[in-house]
């Protein structure tokens, strides 16, 4: 059978991080569920429409107990999107998928409907007693960056989805650098550089000398042979304009 290629464009697959609420139950589970009910009673609908990840890394329970826990949570209308820290033997295909590589973020505030006594405040999350006066919590992302003071060798990959990567040295042929933000290379780029890997079209790539095998910004790729040969060996800035990678020779 002949396969008809209707569209020559390739599919763009990106990674993206979202903020989810993480529940970390502790033993005994029935008491923990009781406290959860208590929290839910004060803040009805808190878990509705919220992505919830179940962290069981501190919990030594069997497969059946984990299944029971998920069912108990489902009965409380808490939908689990993923399980963190579970052993493969604990999981069945029907359970939510295993998740890993989560990065800590600030605690999620549970807004209580009616202010209660302070003594009950030590539930899983912080309880703010006066939601009326409380303004929406200001989420100010701290710009993050990673600096590497040595050359990136062939076969190594530097992955930093949180922000920019600065490399004081060269990136060897066969090495790769993947950043959520921009990439700055104070040396020769001979390997691969992928900026804006989690969907950031404003990310750029800078290098002292361009000899790259492959560059990518926000999922748009360019191979060495597609690059303008006049750029080779020069200090170059690469940025994205629409769906095209633009290059400027610096200095």
């Amino acid at each position: 059978m002949t396969k008809v290629l209707t569209d020559a464009r390739s599919i763009r697959i990106k990674g993206r991080s979202f903020l989810a609420v993480v529940l970390s139950p502790d033993l005994p589970l029935d008491q923990w569920l009781e406290r959860l009910d208590d929290l839910a009673a004060r803040s009805a609908g808190f878990f509705l429409d919220r992505p919830v990840v179940l962290d069981v890394s501190e919990l030594s329970i069997k497969k059946a107990e984990l299944k029971q826990l998920i069912d108990d949570l489902a009965a409380r209308k808490v939908r689990i999107m993923g399980i963190e820290g579970a052993r493969p033997s604990q999981l069945t295909p029907e359970m939510p998928p295993a998740m890993k590589g989560g990065k800590p973020a600030s605690d999620v505030e549970v807004t209580a409907q009616e202010p209660e006594t302070e003594a009950e405040a030590d539930v899983a999350a912080t309880v703010s007693p006066a939601p009326q006066r409380q303004e929406a919590p200001q989420v100010r992302a701290i710009p993050q960056s990673l600096t590497i003071d040595e050359p990136v060798r062939s076969g190594q990959s530097i992955i930093f989805p949180e922000g920019d990567i600065t490399i004081v040295g060269s990136v060897a042929s066969g090495a790769e650098v993947i950043a959520g933000g921009s990439i700055h290379i104070y040396g020769t780029l001979r390997g691969r550089a992928m900026a804006g890997s989690i969907g950031n079209s404003n990310a750029r790539i800078f290098c002292r000398r361009l000899e790259a095998e492959l560059i990518a910004i926000d999922g748009i790729y360019k191979m060495a042979e597609d690059m303008d040969s006049s750029l080779r060996g020069h200090a170059v800035q690469l940025s994205l304009e629409g769906e095209t990678i633009m290059a400027d020779v610096l200095f």
């Binding site: 060798r153 062939s154 076969g155 190594q156 060897a172 042929s173 066969g174 090495a175």
Partner: peptide
């Protein structure tokens, strides 16, 4: 290139 890989290791 192979030496570069070994240096990384």
């Amino acid at each position: 290139r192979d030496s570069d890989r070994i240096i990384g290791m």
